[in-house]
Simulated scan of single mutants.
Amino acid sequence: MSPTEARLEILRTRLQQYIDCEVAILSGAQSYSIGSRSLSRANLSEISDMIRYLEKEIALEEAKANGRGRNKVVGVIPRDF
């Protein structure tokens, strides 16, 4: 497995975990209380932001794997003709 494939697998796993978390929050698992104690889970907007970020990262990694990655300038040699 190449490093790009390994990174893609990790990103996809994390994305699925964030999606599962978002579903749990949307179904009412954001906070609860027992007696005088209460527990609040993650913020929905932060989770949504991370989902968008991971989707972009996955798209970039897939583009690199397919040979369509960003072109980078490593160095420029000025010439005077």
Rank of each mutant, 00 (worst) to 15 (best):
S2G: 07
S2C: 05
P3T: 10
P3D: 08
T4K: 12
E5K: 14
E5D: 11
A6F: 04
A6N: 09
A6P: 05
A6Q: 14
L8D: 01
L8R: 06
L8V: 07
E9P: 07
E9A: 04
L11S: 02
L11T: 07
R12K: 12
R12W: 03
T13K: 11
L15R: 12
L15S: 01
Q16V: 02
Y18S: 02
Y18H: 11
I19V: 13
I19D: 02
I19N: 06
D20S: 12
C21T: 15
E22A: 03
E22D: 08
A24Q: 13
I25W: 02
I25E: 01
S27Q: 15
G28I: 10
G28K: 14
A29I: 03
Q30N: 08
S31Y: 00
S31F: 00
S31Q: 11
S33T: 11
S33E: 09
I34T: 07
I34Q: 05
I34F: 01
I34S: 00
G35V: 03
G35I: 04
S36H: 07
S36E: 15
R37W: 02
S38N: 09
L39R: 07
S40I: 11
R41Q: 07
A42L: 09
N43H: 06
L44N: 00
L44H: 03
L44G: 00
S45W: 09
I47R: 05
D49A: 11
I51N: 00
Y53L: 09
Y53I: 08
L54Q: 06
E55V: 06
K56A: 04
A59S: 11
L60N: 08
E61N: 12
E61V: 10
E61M: 09
E62Y: 01
K64I: 14
N66R: 14
G67P: 15
R70G: 01
N71K: 12
N71M: 10
N71A: 07
V73F: 01
V74I: 14
V74G: 00
V74P: 00
V74D: 06
G75F: 13
V76D: 06
V76W: 00
I77L: 13
P78A: 06
R79T: 13
D80F: 15
D80E: 14
F81A: 01
F81D: 06
